[in-house]
Design a protein around this nucleic acid. Structure first.
Length: 286
DNA sequence: AACACCCCCTGTCGGC
DNA sequence: TGCCGACAGGGGGTGT
C-alpha cells in the first residue's frame, strides 16, 4: 500500500496529535507484525515524550525523549486511526486488526491497524538511526536535493536492470513503490523495460529521458501528497477519510484504457516485472 | 550483479 | 450461493 505520499499523509495527520505528548500507555494486541516487537517494547516507550515525527522513505520515525526512536512501517495494509481526547465518535474500533494502541497524556488514542501484518515497529538509538536496521542503507529522499540527474546517472551507469526494478530499489531512492514508479515513468516517457545502462549514452551523458526523470518523480509525488495519497482498498488517513490521487492515475490500474497523453492514441498495457504488475503506454514510453 | 522465484498474511474480486 | 485461484500499495530471503 503505502508509498511515500501515503506515509507522508499519515505523518501529517499524526504529528499534531502526537508531537509534544507523553505516551502514557502502549498496548500490544497481537504477538508480532512482520517481525517480533522489540524486547520490553511497552515499558521502554511508556512515559516518554514525543519530540518529533519524521518520515524517511516509507518509514515513520517518532523521536522520543531520551534519544530513542520509534521506527514504524505500514507494510501493505497498515494504517493509523486517531481518536481525539473526549471524542464521541471516530474511526471504528477493529478488535481483529488493531494490533498496537498508544494512549497519550491528552487522552487521545492512536491505533495501528494492519490486517496482513506486513508492517513493523522497531526501537533504535537515535544516534544510530541511519546506520542500523531498518533504515541503514536506504537511498536518497526523492523530494530532497539529492535526487538529481547526475545522481541517477551515477547510480545507473554500467548497470543493467530494468529501470522499473531500479526505481523500486529502496537502496537507490527511498520511498517509491509500484504505483508511483509506473506514474513517474509514464510522465518521463521512459519504458519500464528500458535497461538502466541505456539511459546513459556512450560518453556518460544522461539521455533525454533520464534528464526528465527526477522532476517527473518529484511532480508525481508532490501531486499525490496534495491529494492525500491514493486509496485503493484501505483507508489510510488518520481520520479515516480517503486520499483521492487514484482518480488522477495516468497508467496504474488502467489496463486497456486509452493513454492520457494528448495525441498519443495508445492504450495502457499491463505486464509483469519481477513478479509485480507494471502499467505503461507502449506507444509513447520508449 | 541481477535475475527468478519463494515466503510472510489476510482480504477481495472475478470466474465458474 | 459457494468454492477457488489470482492478485494486492512491501520487504526479505533463497538459489542460479
Amino acid at each position: 500500500m503505502p508509498e511515500l505520499p501515503e506515509v507522508e499523509t499519515v505523518r501529517r495527520g499524526l504529528a499534531p496529535v502526537l508531537v509534544g505528548q507523553h505516551i502514557t500507555r502502549l498496548t500490544l494486541r497481537c504477538a508480532d507484525l512482520r517481525r517480533p516487537f522489540p524486547p520490553r517494547f511497552a515499558e521502554r516507550v511508556k512515559g516518554r515524550r514525543v519530540e518529533s515525527l519524521d518520515r524517511r522513505g516509507k518509514y515513520l520515525v517518532a523521536r522520543l525523549e531520551g534519544d530513542l526512536c520509534l521506527v514504524m512501517h505500514l507494510g501493505m495494509s497498515g494504517s493509523f486511526r486517531v481518536t481525539e481526547a473526549g471524542a464521541r465518535s471516530g474511526p471504528e474500533p477493529d478488535r481483529t486488526h488493531d494490533h498496537v494502541v498508544l494512549t497519550l497524556q491528552s487522552g487521545a488514542r492512536i491505533r495501528f491497524n494492519d490486517p496482513r501484518r506486513f508492517g513493523a515497529m522497531d526501537l533504535v538509538d537515535c544516534d544510530r538511526l541511519e546506520t542500523e536496521p531498518p533504515l541503514a542503507g536506504l537511498g536518497v529522499e526523492p523530494l530532497g536535493a539529492d535526487l538529481t540527474v547526475a545522481f541517477l546517472r551515477g547510480a545507473f551507469e554500467g548497470r543493467s536492470s530494468p529501470i522499473k526494478a531500479a526505481l523500486l530499489d529502496q537502496r537507490i531512492i527511498a520511498g517509491l513503490g509500484n504505483i508511483y514508479v509506473c506514474e513517474a515513468l509514464w510522465s518521463a516517457r521512459i519504458s519500464p523495460l528500458r535497461l538502466t545502462g541505456s539511459l546513459v549514452d556512450g560518453r556518460g551523458r544522461a539521455t533525454a529521458g533520464l534528464t526528465r526523470l527526477p522532476e517527473a518523480i518529484r511532480e508525481v509525488l508532490r501531486a499525490a501528497i496534495d491529494s492525500g495519497g491514493s486509496s485503493l482498498r484501505n483507508h489510510f488517513r488518520t481520520d479515516g477519510s480517503l486520499g483521492t490521487f487514484q482518480h488522477a492515475f495516468n497508467v496504474y490500474d488502467r489496463e486497456g484504457e486509452p493513454c492520457r497523453r494528448a495525441t498519443c492514441g495508445g492504450n495502457v498495457r499491463r505486464i509483469v516485472q519481477s513478479g509485480r504488475s507494471t502499467f505503461y503506454c507502449p506507444r509513447c514510453q520508449h
